[in-house]
């Protein structure tokens, strides 16, 4: 079993096999409804948002940091954009404010972490609560309909082209420049990274910049997809963690990290949620299924020592 799990080719093919398996199972169980054009379109719309965020957030996960605040950021950035549109009636300004708010809020987590000397995950949880509170204060139980503003944009292919461009930029930066290598070194062993001239704080900050840009775009795409804004934060934070592990990357960072795993994982997460909903599974139970799946994948992808223990296990 261990030998099979550690097979390099299987590890690479596993995310794709899982995605295909999900499609086959849900197609069979829903009598083909799962493959209807409207459902495929819904999966594409949501998958695209999760995929964009996952590509960016990989720049944070690689350094061994975790940020779960993306759901709240998307919600609050959307509200800010919506209020801007209500005031100015300018769609362009709405997108600009949404993008900037999303990117700044994510980057703020890093600033807070650096200033207060907190682990990023703690800073993100702290800020997540603040974002939720501000969102509730700004909008309460109301909602803002922006359907009129985004109706035509939603029909164009612009989002696909933007997503592809972002993906290519991230892929090049991560895998073909020193940035990705330095991010991985920082995630794997900060002390060793420091001895080869890597400024760990700086490199984490650069990683956050990429993530901030991707999350900013995801905020805008969410507006276009929903056409409606409320103060309920999505489960995007946990979606991203699940997408990352389903895509075959460790959320603990280090040298096995990459920036493309989350793309396949993103569609698997969306297909899983969508398929289970079509089968009549309650939303609460879906969260449970996702939780169990997350634990299983993390367990299977974790390293269990079978040889001499390394120093890292003890220090």
């Amino acid at each position: 079993m261990k030998k099979v799990l550690s097979n390099r080719w299987l590890q690479m093919a596993f995310p794709l096999l899982l995605l295909i398996l999900c499609v086959i199972i849900f197609s069979a169980l829903t009598g083909g409804r799962f493959l209807s054009q409207s459902n495929i379109s819904a999966i594409y719309e949501q998958g695209l948002i999760v995929a964009i965020s996952a590509v960016g957030i990989a720049f944070i996960y690689t350094t061994g940091n975790i940020d779960m605040s993306v759901g709240s950021i998307i919600m609050l950035a959307g509200i800010m954009g919506g209020r801007t549109w209500e005031t100015t009636d300018s769609t362009a300004l709405m997108f600009l404010v949404t993008f900037a708010a999303g990117a700044v809020m994510l980057y703020l987590n890093n600033v807070l972490s650096a200033v207060l000397g907190l682990r990023t995950v703690m800073a993100a949880i702290l800020m997540m609560n603040i974002y939720n509170a501000v969102g509730a204060e700004l909008l309460g139980a109301e909602s803002i309909s922006i359907y009129r503003a985004v109706r035509d944009i939603g029909k164009s292919n612009a989002r696909l082209y933007i997503a592809l461009l972002l993906f290519i930029v991230c892929l090049v930066a991560f895998h073909l420049t020193r940035l990705g290598r330095e991010l991985r070194f920082t995630g794997g062993n900060e002390r060793c990274a420091a001895t080869v001239g890597i400024n760990n704080k700086k490199i984490i900050a650069v990683g956050y910049l990429f993530a901030a840009a991707a999350v900013g775009i995801a905020c805008v795409f969410t507006l276009i997809r929903n056409g409606n804004i409320s103060s309920v934060a999505s489960s995007m934070g946990s979606d991203l963690m699940l997408a990352t592990v389903l895509g075959g990357m460790s959320i603990f960072g280090g040298h096995k990290s990459n920036c493309y795993s989350g793309v396949i994982g993103a569609f698997t997460v969306v297909i899983l949620s969508n398929g289970l909903l079509m089968l009549g599974v309650s939303n609460t139970l879906i969260q449970g299924v996702r939780g169990v799946l997350f634990l299983v994948i993390v367990y299977l992808s974790s390293e269990h020592p079978d040889t001499l223990p390394s120093r890292n296990q003890f220090s």
């Binding site: 020193r178 290598r181 330095e182 991985r184 070194f185 794997g188 062993n189 002390r191 060793c192 990274a193 001895t195 080869v196 280090g254 040298h255 096995k256 390394s310 120093r311 890292n312 220090s315």
Partner: peptide, 20 residues
Amino acid sequence: DNESLEQNASIRANIASTGY
């Protein structure tokens, strides 16, 4: 093991770390 090497990385990643 803690300061001179990233143990979970390959020989290539470790040696190449000084040559970016």
